[in-house]
């Protein structure tokens, strides 16, 4: 594991299983079509992104972690909003890793009340499409072994579990590194 990967042990993926059942476009009064997706625009959104992601995370992030990703790769940060409220966010990066151009999904969160609407899947999809447009060779991320909803979401998109990282998280839990290869 290189030092860079070590530093990135603060990924989180808060989503819920929206793959077992056929997608609903209607849940608790939220209509799927009314959820809109935008790319990151300015520091003004930072607070909301942080609030969204921090609300349930187990790993700590400093504001610098967010800035590292978002300032360097603003095009790979997407926000989902419903009626003037941010309800989901994804934060990624894309750079060279050994010989391949590697996309990395650092954080993904969807607000509890807005889950099971495929918002998480859509955010991931949008980020990956952006990475593909920039010639990514692969996309990776880490998630806790027990995070079944996240595993379902990513595996449904074709990710496979490439590695198990023993005692990866600060709380001593193992992580899985998921990977999606494009070539």
């Amino acid at each position: 594991m290189d030092s860079e990967e070590n530093k990135e042990n603060n990924d989180e993926h808060f989503v819920n299983d929206d793959t077992i059942k056929p997608p609903s476009n209607h849940l608790n009064g939220v209509v799927n079509d009314e959820v809109s997706y935008t790319q990151y625009e300015s520091e003004l959104q930072m607070k909301d992104i942080m609030r969204l992601i921090q609300s349930e995370l187990s790993e700590p992030y400093s504001i610098y972690t967010y800035r590292y990703f978002i300032y360097n790769w603003p095009k790979l940060c997407f926000l989902a909003s419903f009626k003037n409220e941010y309800v989901g966010a994804i934060v990624c990066k894309l750079d060279m890793h050994i010989n391949s151009k590697r996309g990395y999904i650092a954080m993904l969160a969807v607000k509890k009340e807005y889950r099971k609407l495929k918002i998480g899947t859509t955010l991931v999809q949008k980020a990956i499409e952006e990475m593909l447009a920039d010639n990514a060779d692969e996309v990776v991320l880490e998630t806790e072994v027990q995070n079944i909803p996240a595993l379902r979401l990513y595996e449904n998109l074709g990710f496979v579990r490439d590695k198990r990282l023993f005692r990866y998280y600060l709380n001593g839990v193992d992580a899985l590194r998921l990977k999606l290869w494009f070539r």
Binding site: E4, K7, Y64, T65, R67, N72
Partner: peptide
């Protein structure tokens, strides 16, 4: 840079 800053603690 920002990468180094990631290791900073609050």
């Amino acid at each position: 840079g920002l990468f180094d800053a990631m290791s900073a603690i609050e």
